[in-house]
Write a protein that binds this DNA or RNA. Structure first.
Lengths: 206, 206
DNA sequence: GACAGAAGTTACCGCCGGTAACACACTAGC
DNA sequence: GCTAGTGTGTTACCGGCGGTAACTTCTGTC
C-alpha cells in the first residue's frame, strides 16, 4: 500500500476510496455496527461505518432485511456445520448431546452480541425480516430433528415426534442460554451438563 | 355494560365522547389494533381505533413500551395463575407437567396472535421494550423454577440447576409451540404428550 | 359568572427505511 | 482528442414513525 505501485494509482486520497466495495467489506462494516449498536443499527450508521452512503447499501442488499439475512448467513452455516459434526461424532449418545450443546454455548459465550443478533433481533419489527431470519431457528430444529431420528433410528411415522422434540430442544437451549448470559450462576460446562441431564431424563428420574 | 346505569350519564353523543377514556378502554382498542395489524401497530393507528389522538396515549402510558407492557400485563397474570394452579394441583407429577403445558398451549391455540405478541414482538426493536417485556419469559421461568424445586424437594444449593431447567423448559415449550403453530402435524393433546414425554425423560430412555 | 384544571387538538421535531435524480471517474471506439 | 457509455458515488427528497409543545375546549366548583 506504499507509494511504489506503478500500474495502479499509488494511493487513493485517504478520505475517499473510489473503487467498488466488495460485498464482504460491506458486511464487515455492517457487522461491526450491529455488534456495537445492537440490531437497531440504522442503515445510515452502517453506510457511514463502511465509508459510503445509503443508496449503495440498497443497491447491494435490496433492503434492510436483505442485509440482515446476508449478515446472518455468514454465521449460520458455520454453526450448523459444527452442530452436525457434534451430532454425528462417534462415542456415546450423551457425548453427542453434550458436544452439540457445547458448540452452541461456545458461540453464546464467545460472542454474546452476535448470538443475540442471530437468534433475537433477527426477529425484528418487520414481518419480512422476522420471517426470513426466523428461518435460523427453524433450520437448527430441522437439523436436530434429523439427528434425533437417526440417533434413535426412528421409523418415519415417528418423525413428527422427533421434530417436536427437536424444535423444543433448540428452544430449550436458547432460552437457557439467555437466562444464563444474564445470571451466570455457574460456568459453561455446568450449564452444558444441566441441559444434557434434562434431555437425558434426569427430571423424570429425580 | 347495558343501558341501565343510573348514576352515570346515560349515553354520550356517539360521534364524539367528551369524558375521559378509561385506561381499560384504551387498552381494549390497542389490543384490537395489535391483534389485527401485528405488533408493528403504530401509535397513530391505536389512537385512531380508540377515537382519540396520539398525545392522549402518551399521557396515559408514557411511551410505546409502557403501552405494550400494560397490554401484556393484562394477560401475563392470568397465564401465570393458571400455570401455578397446574403446577400445584394434586395428582401425579406427570399430570402436573401435562396440565402446565396444556395451559400454555390453550393460550397458543386459542389466540395465536395474542401469543405471538406476548412472547415475540414484545421483544420489539427498542431495547427498552425488549428488556421490559422480556420479563414475561423470565417470570414464567422463575415461576416454573419454584415449581420444580418444590416438586423435587430440592435443597437450596440445587436451585440454580432447577432454574436452568425451568428456563430451558419454558423455551422448549415456546419454541415447540412456534413450530407447531406453523406445521400443525398433530393436535394440541399430542403435542402436550410429546413435550411431557421429553421432560419425563423419554429421549433418555429411548 | 369566573376560574382552575383536565381532556383533547393541531402542528411540529428529528429520525427512520427507502428512492429518484444527478455528478464524477473510467474505458472504448473512432 | 473527443464522445458515448457504464458503473460508483453523491445529494436531496418522500412518507411515516415515535414523541412533544402549545393551544383550545369542555366540565365541575365556588
Amino acid at each position: 500500500m506504499a507509494s511504489s505501485a506503478p500500474a495502479t494509482p499509488p494511493a487513493p486520497p485517504p478520505a475517499r476510496r473510489r473503487g467498488p466495495r466488495t460485498r464482504a467489506e460491506l458486511l464487515d462494516a455492517a457487522e461491526r455496527v450491529v455488534l456495537r449498536d445492537g440490531p437497531a443499527a440504522s442503515m445510515n450508521a452502517i453506510a457511514a461505518e463502511a465509508g459510503i452512503t445509503k443508496p449503495i447499501l440498497y443497491r447491494h442488499f435490496g433492503d434492510k432485511a436483505g442485509l440482515y439475512v446476508a449478515l446472518a448467513d455468514r454465521h449460520i452455516e458455520t454453526l450448523l456445520e459444527r452442530l452436525r459434526a457434534a451430532l454425528t461424532r462417534p462415542g456415546t449418545r450423551r457425548e453427542r448431546t453434550e458436544a452439540a450443546i457445547d458448540a452452541w454455548l461456545r458461540l453464546v459465550e464467545g460472542s454474546p452480541a452476535l448470538y443475540r443478533f442471530l437468534v433475537h433481533r433477527g426477529q425484528a419489527e418487520e414481518p419480512q425480516v422476522r420471517d426470513r431470519v426466523a428461518v435460523f431457528q427453524r433450520r437448527l430444529g430441522d437439523a436436530l430433528a434429523a439427528g434425533i431420528a437417526a440417533e434413535l433410528a426412528l421409523p418415519e411415522p415417528q418423525w413428527p415426534r422427533a421434530q417436536a422434540w427437536a424444535h423444543g430442544i433448540v428452544g430449550m437451549v436458547q432460552a437457557a442460554s439467555d437466562w444464563w448470559l444474564d445470571a451466570r450462576p455457574f460456568d459453561r460446562a455446568a450449564l452444558t451438563r444441566h441441559l444434557a441431564d434434562l434431555i437425558d431424563g434426569a427430571y423424570g428420574r429425580a
